[in-house]
Design a binder for these strands. Structure first.
Lengths: 235, 235
DNA sequence: GACGGCAATAGTGTATACAGTTATTCTGTA
DNA sequence: TACAGAATAACTGTATACACTATTGCCGTC
């Protein structure tokens, strides 16, 4: 009854290509060359196309008739839409969590937020902060007791990961304290306030997204400042 | 036999297989036999696998290591979760619509709801009602001005279509009047009330889902009572 | 008859070949 | 030189072949 580690080539490269799309090592707007990419990844086109397919239906790639796939461009309007969508999901999830989460679960989440806030300095890199932030939100969504919320949160997190990573760079503090505030209102079973807080928490930097994306494009085109590998396994 | 003449085979059969999964012509829980299904659809396994892949990442199928895909079973808990999720999305979308929709757009939606309510009798089949219902909700989501909401609403609609179809059979009236009430509160820019109404509208029959699913299983296993083709192009 | 191992079968996952479509280069003409 | 159009190359979409895994049926042992 042992579950062998996933040996499917399609699964392996799915993660790699997704990482490449998230970090924009595949240049945004550019066309994906299947033969070239397959060669680069050391597999044939068949499993690669499987991965591209899944990525397209998740919104990372855009299929074009008889011209394969294009990497979705870094579009401010779209990122904004994703932030809005994420806010709606998380507010909804928090309402359910407020009804359903046990005190023990909330204790666990509070401990996580506390530990994240007091993490040692060497962990205070933008990447590490982003990772902790994503984990908090995913765990929070999990307290809704509804996996659809978790899946939706994870999916949107992946699509805005790059932007949030850029954003994290000059947003050192505050995040974890806001997380703590949310958990504490949940423990008081104050759904309305928790919902308001998480909405603010997500919307706070919404007006700066366009600027962040401008910076992001700079990072992309100034070469390896992106440190291509760093975002690969963030979640 | 390689004829990508007009459109991609993968796209064609994607819709067909999705319909088969939605209507449970592919028996829920059962394993999908690729060679058999490909033969049945008149294509090779390659485009079929592409379709199966997309359906898996959309939640219609469940991939299993070295055993292909299984049709997702009709699980009450999961349908419940989808209803909850849908409620959260639509409530969020309505808040945005309340801020952004023009009076003209709301007029249009109201006209649609009115026309739906007063549709001629021969249109009052469960399928037709479901179709109108889905369209209303998708148009409503569209007024949020955020395509992510639309996509999410459409996606969840597809996954609960079968259950709602069963449910529609003894829920003739009321739906359209509730739709009208929602639009009218939107026109008064009363986001709170519109949100409450749509949440109620969606949650109303939540407690009967288990029963509905039981009936659904009956329909599935009593053969063509399902009228397999009817749900195919509902949206 | 029950059970365990082994052969045979069926089925998935991957690679490769091929056909049709799009992009590019080359060539001739004005 | 500029440009149109054909020839060529590059690439995608599909079919097929093959390798490896899981399942099934069979046989012998207990």
């Amino acid at each position: 009854m042992n579950l062998p580690a996933s040996i499917r080539a399609a699964d392996r490269i799915y993660d790699r290509v997704k990482a490449m799309a998230c970090t924009y090592r595949l240049s945004p707007g550019g066309r994906v060359n299947e033969v070239e990419l397959a060669r680069q990844l050391g597999v044939s086109r068949t499993p690669l196309r499987e991965a591209l397919n899944r990525l397209a239906s998740e919104g990372f790639l855009v299929p074009t008739m008889n011209k394969g796939y294009h990497v979705r461009a870094l579009d401010p309007a779209e990122v904004l839409a994703l932030y809005e969508f994420r806010a709606a999901i998380e507010v909804g999830g928090v309402q359910l969590a407020c009804e359903r989460a046990t005190d023990a679960e909330l204790d666990g989440l509070e401990a996580f937020a506390l530990a994240s806030r007091d993490a040692p300095d060497e962990d205070a890199q933008a990447l590490r902060l982003l990772e902790l932030d994503e984990q908090f939100h995913e765990r929070l969504a999990g307290l809704s007791g509804n996996d659809e919320f978790v899946r939706a949160v994870c999916a949107t997190n992946e699509r805005i990961r790059f932007v949030r990573w850029i954003d994290m760079k000059d947003r050192r503090a505050g995040t974890q304290n806001e997380h703590l505030a949310i958990v504490r209102h949940l423990r008081q079973r104050d759904a309305a306030m928790a919902g308001t807080l998480i909405r603010q928490h997500i919307s706070r930097r919404l007006d700066q997204i366009t600027e962040v994306i401008r910076i992001g494009y700079g990072e992309i085109y100034t070469g390896n400042a992106l440190a291509a590998h760093v975002l690969d396994g963030a979640a």
